[in-house]
């Protein structure tokens, strides 16, 4: 059975792109449009990997990421951050949140800055599953 990959992104263009890449590479795509929907899907579908946007309405990618990494049942699910935000800005916001909340969360397994070539995305997925 093919592996399930969830893409969480509010931009339909990005979703259709990632879905197409996944289909072409024999993964089963799942989609969610925002952080809240993303979490529901993860809990329900137990995907093998999550491709996560950072800036989204209703539960940003940052919040969802922290949720995943602090939930014992979910922290093993590999996450690829897939975003237009530079890694530097992302890490800065993580650091600020860590200081604020007093909990440390591991850095994302893979961080991809849009735009990416389809092959880069496939390579990143293959590293993890």
């Amino acid at each position: 059975m093919s592996k399930k990959v969830l893409v969480v992104d509010d931009d339909p263009d990005v979703r259709s792109f990632v879905v197409t890449v996944l289909e072409e590479n024999q993964y089963t795509p799942l989609v969610a449009c925002d952080g809240v929907e993303g979490l529901e899907m993860i809990q329900k579908e137990k995907p093998d990997l999550v491709i996560l946007d950072v800036l989204m309405p209703r539960g940003s990618g940052i919040r969802l990421y922290r949720h995943l990494k602090t939930d014992d049942a979910l922290k093993a699910v590999p996450v690829i951050m897939f975003t237009g935000i530079a890694l530097r800005s992302f890490l800065k916001s993580q650091k600020a949140l860590e200081e604020f909340k007093g909990e440390k969360v591991p850095e994302p397994d893979i961080y991809l800055e849009k735009p990416v070539e389809p092959q880069e995305l496939v390579d990143a997925i293959k590293k993890k599953i």
Partner: peptide, 19 residues
């Protein structure tokens, strides 16, 4: 930044068209 977002759309779209 904005143009980059358009580019992301265009690149993604053209890949989907290719497929």
């Amino acid at each position: 930044h904005y143009v980059k977002n358009i580019l992301i759309g265009l690149k993604g779209g053209s890949y989907v068209v290719d497929v």
